[in-house]
């Protein structure tokens, strides 16, 4: 099930390499939104290109894609169910006593803890 000529795959690879360069350079600007778009947005685009063109999901039976997306949906449910507990710092009957250290970005020696 290989639908394209070798030159097509080389073209996709070149695009992926170009996107890799953007994903490294983009975050150097130090702007949070730019980092999110260039690092994580581009990761999604790269994943799509690999899945569609190299894994041939674009021409595979449609239900294969649905199975894989179903698994991703399970992960979204998992994230949605667990993350409120992880991200919340206090509830009606409890609170976290752990003090989050400040973000310094300086060289630190490793310490035990979170």
């Amino acid at each position: 099930m290989s639908a394209h000529a070798p030159s097509y795959y080389v073209k996709i690879w070149a695009i992926l390499c170009g996107l890799l360069v953007v994903s490294i350079i983009g975050p150097m600007a130090g702007i949070r939104v730019v980092t999110l778009i260039t690092a994580f947005g581009i990761a999604i685009v790269k994943a799509y290109l690999v899945a569609k063109n190299f894994m041939h999901l674009g021409i595979e039976r449609r239900w294969v894609t649905y199975i894989l997306l179903g698994m991703v949906a399970f992960m979204v449910v998992f994230f949605g169910g667990i993350s409120p507990d992880v991200l919340r710092h206090k509830g009606t009957q409890w609170q976290k006593t752990y003090q989050e250290p400040a973000v310094t970005h300086e060289h630190e020696t490793p310490t035990e803890g979170h």
């Binding site: 991200l87 989050e100 250290p101 400040a102 973000v103 310094t104 970005h105 300086e106 979170h114």
Partner: peptide, 8 residues
């Protein structure tokens, strides 16, 4: 996300 200090 819950521990921004991981950036360190």
């Amino acid at each position: 996300i819950g521990h921004p200090a991981w950036a360190n």
